[in-house]
């Protein structure tokens, strides 16, 4: 059944200077799963994301995606293998239109060369038309097609979050990593987001790894959950198991005492 394994991260750790930010993380994702990654602030969740997506190279351990070792690959190469992500602090291309934001992620679906674009050869036009068409399809799914010519920075906050997910999907991922997609959203928006995630997962046959603070969201949609604390995995299991895990309770209560 190993062919089913999409992410296989073993004994992964990273050191910044003398500080071990994350260590001994073992994380497995099966095809089609929706898995949560939770933990108190500073537990190393985003750092783990950054190691999986190639932003940081792990100091220890190995990460394999779909059977391929990711060692030494740059983020864009990892993305081409079929993985894409959103960011905790929205990172849209602010001065580009909504449509162009998605088109950037669609970059690799067309193959026309620079020369072809400069000389405006037929392949340029057919390639650009294909990108335009597909990008608009993605925008429609997210209800963003009416805003396609607006600059991304002019969208309201909730729409920017949606656009970021649309953009990530346009990169044609098998695995989607969402970094706190519900941050800053009200309960209604969060509810809509949950439905949206469930929908795209089915529609695009996605595997999803999700960092989230909103426990309602995590417990509501995730099938399995990993819990990080102080850079180490302290638990993994179904939402029910995590809810009753004494270590997890301690980690979260401990954090509140610290505050």
């Amino acid at each position: 059944m190993t062919s089913n394994l999409l992410i296989k991260a073993e004994n992964v750790g990273i050191q910044f200077g003398g500080l071990k930010a994350v260590q001994n993380v073992n994380l497995y994702l099966n095809q089609g799963e929706l898995v949560g990654l939770i933990g108190p602030n500073g537990a190393g969740k985003t750092t783990t994301f950054n190691m999986i997506t190639g932003v940081y190279q792990p100091t220890f351990g190995t990460i394999a995606f779909d059977g391929k070792n990711l060692k030494g690959l740059k983020p864009y190469q990892v993305t081409k293998l079929g993985m894409s992500r959103t960011f905790q602090n929205i990172r849209l291309f602010k001065d580009l239109s909504v449509l162009d934001n998605v088109k950037v992620a669609n970059h690799n679906i067309a193959k026309h060369s620079i020369i072809s674009s400069i000389l405006r050869l037929p392949s340029h036009f057919s390639g650009e038309a294909k990108m335009e068409q597909e990008s608009i399809e993605f925008l429609k799914i997210f209800g963003l097609d009416v805003y396609k010519d607006e600059l991304a920075k002019n969208l309201p906050y909730g729409m920017q979050r949606r656009l970021e997910i649309a953009r990530a999907l346009a990169a044609k991922p098998k695995l989607l990593l969402l970094d706190e997609p519900a941050a800053g959203m009200n309960p209604q928006e969060t509810h809509d987001l949950m439905e949206l995630i469930a929908f795209i997962r089915k529609e695009f046959n996605l595997t999803i790894l999700l960092i989230e603070h909103d426990m309602h969201l995590v417990m509501g949609i995730c099938e399995r959950i990993y819990v990080l604390d102080h850079g180490q995995l302290i638990a993994d299991g179904t939402p029910e198991e995590i809810r009753n895990n004494p270590k997890v309770i301690e980690a979260y209560l401990g954090e509140e005492v610290d505050d």
Binding site: T53, V55, K74, P75, Y76, T79, K80, S84, R85, F87, R91, L92, F93, K94, D95, L96, D100, K103, V104, A105, N106, H107, N108, A110, H112, I114, S117, I118, L119, R120, H124, G127, E128, M131, R167, A168, A171
Partner: peptide, 28 residues
């Protein structure tokens, strides 16, 4: 012509946010 093509958009995405461009599959 370069600017108004997928290549130009790739280049502009670097100006806008290099980390996001990289994450979207642009060889920055």
């Amino acid at each position: 012509n370069f600017t108004k093509s997928r290549h130009g958009r790739g280049a502009i995405s670097i100006r806008e946010d290099e980390i996001a461009a990289d994450a979207m599959g642009i060889n920055t």
